[in-house]
Design a protein around this nucleic acid. Structure first.
Length: 449
RNA sequence: GUGGAUGUAGCUCAGGGGUAGAGCGCCUGACUGUGGAUCAGGAGGCCGUGGGUUCAAUCCCCAUCAUCCACCCCA
């Protein structure tokens, strides 16, 4: 007896079956449309990079999660990419002739050897838009605008884009007077403010042996509440002696000024001085969108990274960008049933039935006409009982069936059946395409997309 | 990486030391040109994998793998 290999996929990775793939493509289409609307150009880079390109960019914790991708006898030390930003920087350094500012988007998988959880996979898609070669806060404002546009078009009603600035964080660090070695832990504790509250942060700071007077100082900063402008003004006042903090608040004020002009509603973003973000390469404004329900973490993240390209070339460029997490966005949309009814289970719009061998020829002719008319049409592959063919259409969620039997053919007709309403009508053969088109256009919810 | 829970039919799950059940789904028929209803019948499981204890293991013990949850981190 033959022994079989148990069919399975690597941990944290999965197959995306057609029904789910259709939803995915819908989300990707929306994102791509927005990106291109803002003038971002498509870019693709290899799934693997030389390991030296990736190391030393993300910080030691993240670096452990990079997949090694060498093969037996391979001479190169290569790894699967961890994100799309570092490969972009490599591209910028490699092709100096690209006109600046360079705006590109990339929608591709990345790999991280994390322990999987809901909304956390080892292979997942990032959808990145980045602007290289401009230090204008308008570029950063555009990133936030992208997030706003994409999420509202996907039907997200309530979301809040947290905005902060690495310079402001550095200022807070200096303000606290905590030695550099402890700074990482300090930031990490502060970052949890939204999750564990002031008391929780206080407790954690004490555990990390941060002196009481420092904790007190920090709490006065973290307690600042109000709209973005108020928070920034207060921060500016509290940290006015620190140049780096002044720069941070100035940047954010400029950014918010642009957001207002661009028409991004105020309730969609908020300055959150406690939001830190882990990746080491950020240098200026940073932003992320966290959804509370379901508990899935952040669905977007990004920021300015003016130094990163400098690690590949003498000539450095300021850069900023943002990233969308498709699988988390889809997880949220599925949880709340946010897909429009126009996103169906199948791409097929019409099932062309086949009665018998004689009529097969007529069915194929009609199918060809439908396809030429731009209607996605599937033909049943062999004559079968009509009930079987209907059942197939129903199981696949195909919205319409065209039935061509000897009775219809004799009258020069075909029957056009709406599977959902079970209504059926005879239509002259040369009007079938037109009729189906009309049905598709008028009955939203039964077409695919 | 740390801690915890769970792996039994396609799906959701029950059961329990003597090689297994429900609901839903699926297939067939009643229905020779019309799918979601009804009725009748049927298929489908080395009870995650490997080892141990036992006369005997799906059940007890150990290991391992996978999934989920929390932490960590992040999309």
């Amino acid at each position: 007896m033959a022994t079989f290999i148990k069919p399975r996929v690597p941990r944290g990775m999965r197959d995306i079956l057609p029904e789910q793939m259709i939803r995915r493509q819908y989300v990707i289409d929306v994102i791509r449309d927005v990106f291109e609307e803002f003038g971002f150009e498509p870019l693709q880079t290899p799934a693997m990079e030389l390991s030296e390109v990736l190391t030393g960019k993300y910080g030691p914790d993240a670096e452990k999660l990079i997949y090694q991708a060498g093969h037996t006898g391979g001479k190169e030390d290569i790894s699967l990419r961890y994100d799309l930003s570092v490969p972009l920087c490599r591209v910028i350094a490699m092709y100096p002739q690209l006109p600046k500012p360079f705006k590109r988007y990339q929608i591709d998988p990345v790999w991280r050897a994390e322990r999987p959880q809901k909304g956390r996979y080892r292979q997942f898609f990032q959808c990145d838009a980045d602007t290289v070669g401009s230090d204008s806060m308008l570029a950063d404002a555009e990133n936030v605008n992208l997030i706003y546009q994409v999420l509202s078009r996907l039907g997200f009603k309530q979301f809040e884009i947290s905005v902060n600035d690495r310079k402001l964080i550095t200022g807070i660090g200096q303000f606290s007077g905590v030695p550099t070695a402890q700074l990482g832990g300090l930031y990490r504790s502060i970052d949890k403010l939204d999750k564990i509250g002031l008391d929780g942060v206080t407790a954690e700071l004490r555990e990390n042996e941060i002196p009481e007077d420092v904790i007190k100082k920090l709490l006065t900063l973290l307690q600042i509440e109000g709209d973005s402008t108020t928070v920034l003004n207060e921060m500016q006042e509290q940290l006015e002696d620190l140049e780096i903090a002044r720069e941070g608040t100035a940047e954010l004020k400029e950014l918010i000024g642009y957001l207002t002009t661009l028409g991004v509603p105020e309730e969609c973003y908020k300055v959150n001085v406690a939001m830190v973000r882990g990746l080491e390469y950020y240098t200026g404004p940073i932003y992320e969108t966290v959804v509370e329900e379901p508990k899935i973490g952040s669905i977007t993240g990004g920021g300015r990274y003016d130094e990163l390209i400098g690690s590949f070339s003498k000539q450095s460029f300021p850069a900023t960008g943002t990233s969308f997490g498709i699988e988390r966005i889809i997880d949220v949309m599925e949880e709340f049933d946010m897909f429009p009814s126009t996103v169906g289970k199948t791409v097929t719009q019409v099932l062309m039935t086949v009665f018998d061998d004689e009529l097969m020829k007529e069915s194929l002719k009609l199918a060809t006409q439908l396809r030429q008319g731009g209607i996605r049409t599937e033909v049943y592959f062999r004559p079968a009982r009509l009930s079987a063919q209907m059942k197939y259409a129903d199981a696949k969620g195909i919205p319409y069936a065209v039935i061509l039997g000897s009775d219809e053919l004799a009258a020069g007709n075909a029957a056009v059946r709406d599977l959902a309403s079970r209504e059926q009508e005879n239509v002259p053969l040369d009007k079938v395409v037109e009729r189906i088109k009309h049905l598709i256009n008028t009955s939203e919810g039964r077409q695919t997309f």
